[in-house]
Write a protein that binds this DNA or RNA. Structure first.
Lengths: 375, 375
DNA sequence: CTGAAAGCGCTTACAG
DNA sequence: CTGAAAGCGCTTACAG
């Protein structure tokens, strides 16, 4: 008995079905079945080389494997196969946390990955540009491919991605050569949402924007402007208010606007860059006694869990985040299996449709309201 | 040139810093530096065997490794070291999604794991008991240890965990021999919360419970009952309402109660089993025109993102979910590094303190309200 | 100071 | 039908 297995023997009080202190290897199974490791490997993998194994031997092998609770060692298998059956997911951890947006997409990724028997490894980055090297260092055999969640490299700082690992991005801010990007029809979604507000009779429609310089927020602004123009509503620049992508920033932006515009006519409806911002916006209105949707309508974007966790629930634009995650996994696996072929078959970027999620936070316009300056 | 590297050469249009179509190996670096693989391994790992390497050789090795963008292959390393530098996180995917509770704990796990340079692999299970075998099959070298998130095996169905992989659980429903469980002071939290409601003047306090048969919900009920008793408030059984752990179930439970008890005095405050339930509860009140906190106070539990994403924000019991995730990683790593030793040093279960998160959803009691039956 | 060699546990041509 | 052998890319005693 080696020193190693002695240590292991002490690891835990003898469990019920503890078949041994050390996992069984192929050689162990071969020995128990009175055959060679090769035959065991063939049988257990249903491999279909020229070689065949007799039913008798096969039966003995299966029995021995079950008896020893044999599980092929993943590291050894990965080394021999040059595939580790795992995909990576890289996302930026903002303010120490992965957010709702991540959670939704990740749910799609993990469902699809599990279906395809792939492991999913999550990498939390601090900053896309600064962690570009880490991204590259992660390509050391621990994953077969990687999904980049909303990467925001500028054109000037293209990521240094190795050529021998396939990448797929979701909501990338820029397109990278060789990396398929999965997007959604954000401009159309924003357009439809604002049109919806207009159909409810709203005329003075504010937009709290996302962070500037990013593709997503810009598309939402374009949809907003186009919907106003098509409805022949005037664009009023005080109604285009920079916010960000968090509840905090939404609250601050709306609060600030109310303070600066005391006495001015309030917006009848606010289209927010995402659901989190909408929540902050509703809070800011609440602070000055305005109720949603009675006094003012508010709408979000993304339709994350947050949209359904607010009272009233948010009218929002449903991005197919789960589907986007699942799609990313499928594209990635196609490339992993056929690095040369899968490339041309796919349009780049892939754009998935969005749809309006109509809920309670949008009502009909109330009479013109203003905040009394003294308040 | 082998067939394999030919394929790889076509994988992507020539990238800027593409150092080669195939990742460099230790042998490649050794060749470039004019030395042996062993010396390269020693230098790159700062290994401290008896062996030494001269500064000149060392310099050549470092230069060659950088030039070739050498990254040690993880699978090969894992095979040689019997450690793959990864931990697993197993959680049940309910209704196709990982929830807020998962997200919070996972944020703690990934932060700590990243700090310790460990990969984090997420396994989505459908059912603890049915997937018990899958859990075992995952222990095939792909992870060095595993964290079980809120496992709910009954005593009758103890999981079949292999002895050679360490496990740590968080909020386990039962304790397993050899698995440290990390908990939080849920009963005390519930007690403090109800005490808080009482201090605000509430007397008729309802509790919407979590799923029956689980430790967490039971502890919350005990805290609730004890707080009532200590304040010499009568326990009224219609005020102990079974719900569940989702917004849906919270809404349904509250709605149902209101329908069944039309004309009865309403609760002044509702203590909900978690934040999601509280959101559902607020919605149900909203449907019959009752406002929170003006007409009725509502409090949650857990203090997940949901608690801060509702308007009004929820008074809740803050569970240190992030800290629990981080703690789990640390305990697990201690066991991985010292399977024999780390065991006794640690109390089991570990109980972390909770604290009250006071927000806007709890106010002072309004006069006695009843719903008109006709409504 | 340096390197040849064995071994980690698999897979896969290849030769009986 | 069956198995000995080489190889995947590392690490680590061990012998110069």
């Amino acid at each position: 008995m080696t020193n190693r297995s002695q240590n292991r023997a002490h690891q835990r009080p003898p469990a019920a079905a503890c078949a041994g202190a050390r996992p069984a290897t192929l050689a162990d199974v071969a020995r128990a079945a009175g055959t060679s490791a090769m035959s065991v490997s063939m049988v257990l993998n249903n491999a279909c080389t020229t070689s065949q194994v007799s039913p008798r031997t096969r039966k003995r092998i299966v029995a021995a494997a079950a008896q020893l609770q044999y599980r092929p060692n993943l590291a050894a298998r990965a080394l021999a196969n040059r595939r580790i059956q795992a995909i990576g997911v890289a996302a930026v951890v903002e303010g120490g946390e992965l957010n709702h947006y991540f959670l939704e997409i990740f749910n799609g990724i993990i469902a699809s990955a599990t279906l395809h028997r792939q492991n999913t490894t999550v990498f939390g980055l601090h900053d896309w540009v600064r962690d570009s090297i880490r991204l590259r260092d992660l390509c050391d055999g621990r994953i077969d491919g990687m999904i980049l969640l909303a990467p925001t490299f500028g054109c000037e700082a293209a990521p240094n991605l190795p050529a021998y690992v396939p990448f797929v991005s979701i909501h990338a801010n820029h397109l990278f050569p060789g990396v398929v990007n999965i997007e959604s029809a954000e401009e159309e979604g924003a357009y439809a949402l604002v049109q919806h507000l207009i159909a409810h009779g709203h005329r003075r429609i504010m937009h709290l924007t996302g962070p500037m310089g990013l593709t997503g927020p810009e598309r939402r602004i374009r949809g907003y402007l186009r919907a106003l123009a098509d409805a022949r509503l005037p664009f009023e620049s005080p109604f285009l208010v920079p916010a960000g992508f968090t509840t905090e920033l939404g609250r601050t932006a709306m609060r600030g606007w109310l303070a600066r515009h005391a006495g001015d006519p309030l917006p009848q409806a606010v289209f927010c860059a995402n659901d989190a911002v909408a929540v902050g916006c509703i809070e800011a209105f609440g602070e000055v006694g305005l109720r949603v949707p009675d006094d003012v309508s508010v709408a979000g974007f993304d339709d994350t869990l947050a949209a359904r966790s607010v009272v009233p629930q948010l009218t929002s634009v449903r991005q197919p985040l789960r589907a986007m995650g699942a799609k990313a996994v499928e594209l990635l696996l196609a490339r992993i299996h056929d690095p040369a072929g899968a490339r041309e078959a796919v349009p780049d970027p892939i754009v998935l449709p969005v749809e309006l999620a109509v809920r309670a936070s949008v009502g009909t316009p109330s009479r013109v309201r203003r905040l009394v300056p003294s308040r």
